[in-house]
Write a protein that binds this DNA or RNA. Structure first.
Length: 710
DNA sequence: AGTCTCACG
DNA sequence: ACGTACGTGAGACTC
């Protein structure tokens, strides 16, 4: 296997595969114990994180026939465990002793810990900071764990010493941050030392902001996500409870809560050590426990190709951030506010009284109480529902107040969530907006974006698109948007193996028009827009696990009519019904479904006796392989794009991911070359693991703002 | 803290 | 008879 360095990688001086000792044919339980025994404590446990092609790693997904295709390298041969000690469950669950943790306050002791990590070839790492935002956080200290129960905390930014203050100077006994960073950098970048962390992306950014690119690494949160996604959350406290039957010290316990809450730099060193070292200790134990399970449960490829390499890719994206134009947003907000004010006067006039339009309760009371308008529906808590669907109906019946409330609401949404909120996210140091991607929060393998959410920036209305225009490129550069065309329907055609759909995509036909033509018997040429619209809704519905109720609701037609459409669809494409039935059965049997790449999505309520819950679970089971495979494919593209750009000496940077779209920033002179490189990587992203029977098509465009580029 | 509504794919 | 289109996150209001 050839190991190469990527853009931000350090040279691999001793490429040892920590999995190399795994016995390929070991039965799951035996394999688990063996792997635990041999893998966990081998010296020099470097992992090949810097591989050029994520598919060039040993096969472990034989259970997933499709995913096994592309695994080129043979399974590694067994080799002796070497210095590996036996790591048994007793050691991993040995009681936590907070007093056994060391507070490291000077370089000689820190050097000892670093040497110990080097000897073992691995170390668990955790950072304590002053903020959940890693782009603004101050560093309070770093904790390390080398063996279960053997952990330390290295404070370097505390303001409260507690007992650990120097009596002569009343200063806190701690190393300077610069000295800690300088001492840790060689360790954290040492290719021969595996760094284990919980939600590493956070710590990666803390270190990246201080000039360190951590590598190689493992992430316990992501191991858990791959093994047990959909079954439970993947936070450290939950994992500790679940796997170690240990409840870590709650953060509130050391930092307080409510008005007494302080930042971690104000926590006294002794308590800080208890808390921080415990986190590293627990993380190490979780890593030693979960890592062997990845191989034993044939999920190693998913972890190593779709999760682990994405950590640094996402961290670099978040680090880069994106420029927004606050002046444009302010002008928009003012425009919207003026229009809203006029609407408000009108609405109150029609209502015959002033009330808070933003209060669903008050609005419901006016519409359905005071005026007794028809079409009232109650929410599950018994209040009048006033959502857009209800108001649309009222507006269609000629109730102008409903239309006005709808328009008012749209502007309120745009102001509250976007024009007024986004400027507050501009980082004062970088002048840019740095979202955070949650890697383990969805059941399907999608990412989620928070603080702010940049995956739901408006696009569907003209007013909304004006907000998108505020996402801009810096002078001399362009934004490049690249998005997969119809990726989920293409994957449906492949996965359910529907000849007509595959042919339509091969010929790049209008898929919704073709569907309409097939089920309604209307020629594509001269097709009324309404017919195509209905077919489009059906196509979406299929991907969502269609129901007559849902389709009827979406199209505003009778359930019987919707049922007829579905019946027609299934008789025209019987493979779709087969896929749905087989997928439901698979989920019932196994409790999970899988993507083409072997990502497992557990479906918790698939055997529920509650028909409503079970129905929901069945639709989720139908949708997950499609949505999840699309998520896997764009993850693969994201892992490869930075290397592909660097290989052409391009400085273009990936900034955002919006499920089927990637947004880049590139110097003007680079845009054409970058566009074609990006398109090429994205369209080939399923290869070589999966040879899809439909083409993947990516549309790319460059402009000075996101709206124009999309 | 829970509910409702609505922004996105 | 039942209640659902799949997956998210944020802001305002309410209690």
């Amino acid at each position: 296997m050839r190991l190469v360095t990527l853009d931000h990688a350090v040279p691999v001086k001793e490429p040892i595969d920590e999995f190399a000792v795994r016995e390929p044919q070991a039965a799951p339980l035996i394999g688990f114990l063996r792997a635990m025994e041999f893998n966990s404590l081998t010296r020099r446990a470097a992992s090949h994180f810097n591989i050029e092609d994520p598919d060039l790693i040993p096969s472990d997904t034989a259970a997933s026939p499709a995913a096994a295709q592309g695994t080129a390298a043979p399974a590694p041969s067994a080799k002796p465990g070497g210095a590996g000690a036996v790591m048994d469950r007793a050691l991993l669950t040995k009681p936590i002793d907070h007093d056994a943790y060391e507070t490291v306050t000077a370089l000689p002791r820190l050097s000892e810990w670093i040497a110990r990590a080097r000897e073992l070839g691995r170390v668990a790492v955790d950072t304590e900071t002053t903020s959940l935002d890693p782009m603004q956080a101050g560093l309070c200290g770093v904790s390390l764990a080398v063996m279960p129960g053997e952990a330390c905390y290295i404070p370097c930014g505390h303001r409260a010493g507690g007992d650990l203050v120097s009596s002569s100077r009343d200063a806190i006994v701690q190393m300077a941050e610069a000295d800690v960073i300088a001492a840790l950098k060689p360790l954290l970048e040492d290719p021969g030392v595996l760094k284990i962390a919980q939600n590493l992306k956070y710590d990666y950014l803390i270190f990246l902001n201080r000039g360190i690119r951590v590598a190689p690494f493992d992430d316990t949160m992501l191991m858990s996500y791959v093994l047990e996604g959909g079954l439970h959350g993947h936070g450290m406290d939950e994992l500790s409870q679940l796997h170690l039957t240990h409840t870590p010290i709650p953060f509130d316990k050391v930092a307080g809560k409510g008005k007494d809450k302080v930042t971690f730099d104000n926590v006294a060193l002794k308590e800080a050590t208890h808390y921080a070292a415990e986190d590293a200790d627990v993380t190490l134990r979780l890593g030693l426990l979960l890592k062997p399970r990845l191989a034993a449960e044939a999920k190693r490829t998913v972890y190593e190709t779709l999760e682990r390499p994405l950590i640094s890719v996402l961290a670099e994206m978040e680090y880069a951030g994106i420029t927004i134009d606050p002046d444009l947003l302010r002008r928009l907000s003012n425009d919207f506010a003026q229009i809203q004010a006029r609407m408000e006067t009108q609405i109150h006039k029609l209502a015959g009284e002033t009330f808070n339009i933003g209060s669903p309760k008050q609005l419901g009371d006016i519409l359905f109480g005071k005026f007794s308008l028809p079409g009232g529906r109650k929410t599950k808590t018994g209040a009048w529902s006033t959502d857009a669907e209800i108001l649309d109906d009222l507006a269609a019946q000629g109730h102008d107040i409903a239309k006005m409330v709808l328009d008012w609401r749209q502007l309120a949404k745009l102001r509250g969530t976007y024009t007024d909120a986004l400027p507050n996210y501009i980082n004062p140091r970088t002048g840019r907006v740095h979202t955070s991607y949650a890697m383990a929060s969805t059941s399907t393998g999608r990412l989620a974006s928070t603080d702010p959410n940049l995956q739901n920036i408006p696009i569907r209305t003209e007013e909304g698109r004006r907000i998108r225009q505020a996402f801009v490129s810096p002078p001399g550069a362009k934004l490049i948007s690249a998005d997969y065309s119809q990726i989920e329907l293409r994957l449906l055609a492949h996965i359910a193996d529907i000849p007509e759909l595959k042919k339509a995509f091969a010929e790049e036909l209008d898929i919704h028009a073709m569907t309409a033509s097939e089920i309604f018997g209307v020629p594509v040429k001269g097709m009324p827009a309404e017919v195509r619209r209905r077919a489009k809704a059906i196509n979406f519905g299929i991907v969502y696990g269609i129901s007559a109720f849902g389709l009827a609701n979406q199209l505003g037609i009778a359930r019987e009519e919707a049922g007829d459409y579905i019946k027609k669809y299934f008789s025209r494409f019987p493979g779709i019904r087969d896929y749905m039935e087989e997928t439901k059965q698979f989920a019932r049997d196994k409790g999970y479904v899988e993507t083409l790449f072997g990502r497992r999505v557990h479906i918790r309520e698939i055997r529920s006796t509650n028909p409503s819950f079970r129905g929901g679970a069945e639709r989720a089971a139908i949708n997950a392989p499609i949505q999840g495979t699309a998520a896997d494919i764009i993850r693969r593209a994201m892992v490869r794009v930075p290397g592909a750009l660097a290989a052409q000496k391009l400085t273009a940077r990936m900034l955002l991911q919006v499920h089927d779209e990637l947004v880049f920033e590139a110097p003007d002179a680079e845009t054409a070359v970058a566009e074609s490189a990006i398109k090429s990587v994205m369209e080939k992203a399923a290869l070589p693991a999966i040879q899809l029977s439909v083409p993947l098509t990516v549309e790319v465009r460059a402009a000075t703002n996101w709206d124009a580029a999309h």
